[in-house]
């Protein structure tokens, strides 16, 4: 038998503000999933499209060189070129969708994309998610620097290994 009885279920789900209808058919669920997928995709495009467009043309026009030389001493710690600072900064301040736009606009190798992805998966959307953590309990806002630190640690560890693995 399940250990979460009906009473508990109600407690969990009513507070979430979502309906409790178990009778929904698979078709209805698939349809609402489809709707959520489309909304998420549109949300993603809202960030991806402008960021990708700006980064692509800046890169093609050679305007990223100064930016890259500014950041390359720091990015080389992770085995990344200076331009990699763009997806990392956008991903941490904004969100993953913006970072994906920047990644698509830059010309990076598979190993570089892997390192950036891992860093961003651990540490991203820090302002919004920091606010969520703060709302749970103010002390948890310390997880913001913690995630940033972990992402740096993981990248520094992976960097010397990645060319042997990939």
């Amino acid at each position: 038998m399940t250990e979460w009885d009906d009473k508990d279920d109600k407690k969990y789900f009513i507070t979430s503000g979502r309906s409790l209808e178990m009778e929904e058919t698979f078709f209805a669920l698939a349809l609402s999933g489809l709707k959520r997928g489309i909304y998420t995709f549109l949300d993603l495009l809202k960030f991806l499209l402008p960021v990708y467009t700006i980064i692509f043309f800046l890169q093609e026009g050679g305007f990223l060189k100064e930016w890259a030389t500014l950041f390359s001493p720091y990015m080389s710690i992770f085995g990344l070129p200076g331009e990699a600072a763009i997806p990392l900064i956008l991903g941490n301040i904004l969100n993953i969708y913006a970072a994906l736009g920047a990644l698509a606009g830059l010309h990076l190798s598979g190993a570089e994309i892997t390192i950036i992805s891992l860093m961003l998966l651990i540490s991203h959307n820090q302002i919004m998610e920091g606010a969520v953590l703060f709302k749970v309990r103010p002390i948890f806002v310390l997880l913001v620097p913690f995630r940033l630190f972990l992402s740096i640690l993981v990248a520094v560890t992976l960097n010397p290994l990645i060319h042997e693995i990939l």
């Binding site: 993953i96 994906l100 598979g110 994309i113 992805s117 891992l118 961003l120 992976l158 693995i165 990939l166």
Partner: peptide
């Protein structure tokens, strides 16, 4: 994870 795979990252390493 799937979004970064689409961008070209290695599944196991991320």
């Amino acid at each position: 994870t799937l979004l970064f795979l689409a961008a070209g990252a290695n599944f196991f390493l991320i």
